[in-house]
Amino acid sequence: MNNPADTDPDITDPTLAAHLDEAPSGAFALAGIAVALLLVAWAIIYLFVFLPRGPVG
């Protein structure tokens, strides 16, 4: 729920509809790239540091 005092009167539904036809493609792209790089970085450490350091237990 939104307190009426918090709502910005300039942003109306038609304004949103007019500007947001492409959203959230940008968020998918940016967050997707960030998470993909994260997985790649994790895999690099896993494959090239962790596994070569040998078994323990």
Partner: peptide
Amino acid sequence: FAMVGAAMMMLFAIVWASLSPHMNPP
């Protein structure tokens, strides 16, 4: 869904390392 999938991939790799080349915490 994509994020849970990514987490599961890491989980799979960790579990594999712990079972197959026996890389476990002491």
